[in-house]
């Protein structure tokens, strides 16, 4: 998927920290994303996702209430969201936890503090993945 598609993709940042959300928001905007929404907890995220299907979602693992990974597991079980690129963002740098996030359906795992370089690589991964996913779905249909 060429980067020219970036302005048309919808992104959701789910994190309880406002500073973290605005940091990522700023970086994503600098990559060319025009439609970036934020949610401060899993309930808020679920409502937003239901109302407006996003293309790329960044989920904080540890949040008050329901965790980002638990929410992602539910979304992964929903066919409506099977071409949504989901990422887990966390301070946790334990390999078994990272493996757990990947098993739950994360395309990749981003360790905080999020840097522009790592975020950009993962956006590129997301673009490629979404493209392949949608192409294979078209073949199936």
């Amino acid at each position: 998927m060429p980067k020219s598609k970036i302005p048309y993709l919808r992104v959701l940042i789910v994190d309880d920290s406002r500073m973290q959300r605005s940091l990522m928001h700023e970086m994503l905007a600098s990559f060319g994303f025009k439609h970036i929404d934020e949610a401060e907890n899993s309930g808020d995220a679920n409502e937003k996702m239901d109302a407006l299907r996003y293309d790329i979602v960044f989920l904080d693992w540890v949040m008050p209430g329901r965790s980002g990974v638990s929410l992602m597991e539910e979304w992964r079980g929903d066919r409506r969201y099977d071409d949504v690129a989901m990422f887990v963002v966390s301070m946790q740098d334990d390999k078994s936890m990272i493996a757990g996030a990947v098993k739950a359906g994360a395309l990749s795992y981003i360790i905080k503090p999020v840097t522009e370089g790592v975020l950009l690589i993962n956006v590129e991964k997301a673009l490629k993945w979404i493209d392949e996913r949608r192409a294979s779905r078209e073949r199936e249909e």
């Binding site: 740098d93 334990d94 390999k95 990272i98 493996a99 990947v102 994360a106 395309l107 990749s108 795992y109 981003i110 360790i111 840097t115 370089g117 790592v118 690589i121 993962n122 991964k125």
Partner: peptide
Amino acid sequence: THFDIQRGLTMKLILDHFTMENT
């Protein structure tokens, strides 16, 4: 670094072939 390995590697390859050491 996290940046180095994320360039070009899938999570599966990262988890199969690398271990974490601090950051």
